[in-house]
Design a protein around this nucleic acid. Sequence first.
DNA 1: TCGTTTCCCACGAAATCCCATTGTCACCCA
DNA 2: TGGGTGACAATGGGATTTCGTGGGAAACGA
Lengths: 186, 186
Amino acid sequence: MHGQAAHSGERGSFACAAGVRGEVALEHLFQGSALNAVDAKGRVSVPAFLRSVIERRGDARTIVLAKHSQFACLDAYDPAYAALKHAKLERLLEKGETEPDAELAYQQRNLMAFAATEETPYDSSGRIVFPPMMRRKGGIEDLALFLGTGETFQIWNPQTLLGDKNIPEDLKDIARYRLEERGVTP
Amino acid sequence: MHGQAAHSGERGSFACAAGVRGEVALEHLFQGSALNAVDAKGRVSVPAFLRSVIERRGDARTIVLAKHSQFACLDAYDPAYAALKHAKLERLLEKGETEPDAELAYQQRNLMAFAATEETPYDSSGRIVFPPMMRRKGGIEDLALFLGTGETFQIWNPQTLLGDKNIPEDLKDIARYRLEERGVTP
DNA sequence: TCGTTTCCCACGAAATCCCATTGTCACCCA
DNA sequence: TGGGTGACAATGGGATTTCGTGGGAAACGA
């Protein structure tokens, strides 16, 4: 258990390669993987190394959950990132404005980005209670696989990930390792 | 013993071949080699001459580990370099977004760059504890061979390197020298 | 009152910190 | 020139804290 929570450490404040055309830069990125249990009450520990990033980005002890736009998993991030995401959408709109469906696409994305999300706080021990709707959308059962992806992190049902054709084999190896580490081989 | 901490020295601060079209440049490069022991707890000293590069690139005392894409070894770098990598991906996405598979390719790369890596801090004496997953992926046992490769550095099981057909003989000589230096000849 | 949800405490394993030791090298000063 | 000596790198072992997790008590809404 405990994945590799430890390695996260508390420091790691590194300068970010920023300055991409006025974009807000993220100084701290989500990285690493862990497999945690979902208990009978629907509680899960958010891995400590992810929490440390959240708390460095802002002072919230909260995560935002959304269905991932492409994968059968959940996308998660901190509240501060939500604002950033909004700015990104704006920029996308400006870029593709010439295209006919641009406005519609923008509205749709905006809905997805904000209406279709749930914000959940984690307690002093770092656990959230999984909102039932999100839990279902992510197909999460009794194990939650956390994957850092830089700006955000993903939460998977490990079995779903293993069955996804679009996931690189090297990444599946990691999922298998985490399962094995926990004694779930079948 | 203590390898050759010395040869590496503390210098090596040279200007980097920078200025690749607005890209963030790395001012300090990893170079040199060392062979260190992995103890029973899985701890290894990161050679001081590599740490000094890490700390000049940013203020982190942390290394990022990943499986090397081609060799049977680990690839390692500092968090600042990871951020740089991320910025590159972002830029690629915005540029080639018109293509249909661009988004998927982006997601896959991001997963590999962040989920398939582990960040581990080194303590005041310069040691990391090898994350078990990475240790296995790199086939690292009780000796770790560090090789600087400029932007990043590699960590090998010396025996694996000696058995790799794609490694130049001159480099194997270095590995042999480090082993001999340490009294491991068989 | 009953069923949830939220909070709090407890435990075991594992990771992190701290101190101690030793060999090398660099430097200094006779 | 050469021996001493101080600093630093690499390594070993023990002590302490943190993390993930389970269970129960208290608060809340219906």
